[in-house]
Amino acid sequence: MWLFLVTEVLFFGGVLCAYTAYRIWYPKEFEAGSTALNPLIATINTFLLLSSSFTITLAIRSAYKGEHAGLRLWLVATIVLGTVFLCFKAREYYGDYEEGLVPSQQKTLVDTVDESGKPILKEVSVFAVNLKHVLEEKEGKAKAISDKMTWNERERVQIFFMFYYSMTGLHVLHMIVGLGLLVWQLILAQMGFFRPTERYIYIEVMSLYWHFVDLVWIFLFPLLYMAGIHSVEHLHF
């Protein structure tokens, strides 16, 4: 399992490397993109995942001790925590969709000025317009960030959002696989597969995977959500 996790580390390593490269190029755009995300849901999700890592360690212990009720309880708790995470995640994606923060090729026209200060009509993507709205609604520093940005920079925030969707999307996929494994372990537990000090290794190995999913989130959280500027007043679901 550790060997398999090596491949997972490098899999996420690939996208993190790409992320780093662009963050070096476009620090401002990444900050703006992160500011537009929903920090409240992310924070709640962080704690949910950490708790689920905790419950699965307890499940290993119960399996080792042969406490069937405890084992089932902790497995169910882990599954519930994971599922709630996914529900929040879905809510978050829906929120982003409603705000129009989805990179696309759709274009629209806006009034702006060219380099010499002459008013012109410029073709920009719908995404950039939506981003401007979202940041301005957040007021304060978020608005200040938005005001300083040119339209070209707003376009580039799409790169941040491509990272946001692909990284969290892959993480969600891994979670779904993990939940499937957990359910399988639960069924095994129900069938009395685990006996004291025997076979608990199955849960232990599977827990490695689950912890790894948690580990990925631990890094996604500061890189995606906490890279921007958030203020407590504008927290919402």
Binding site: L10, F11, G13, G14, S104, S166
Partner: peptide
């Protein structure tokens, strides 16, 4: 191999969404 998988996934994303 995982890094190739990631590169191809990102490429596929670009191909699907056009961006």
């Amino acid at each position: 191999t995982p890094v190739l998988a990631m590169a191809v996934s990102l490429l596929a994303t670009e191909r699907i969404f056009g961006i």
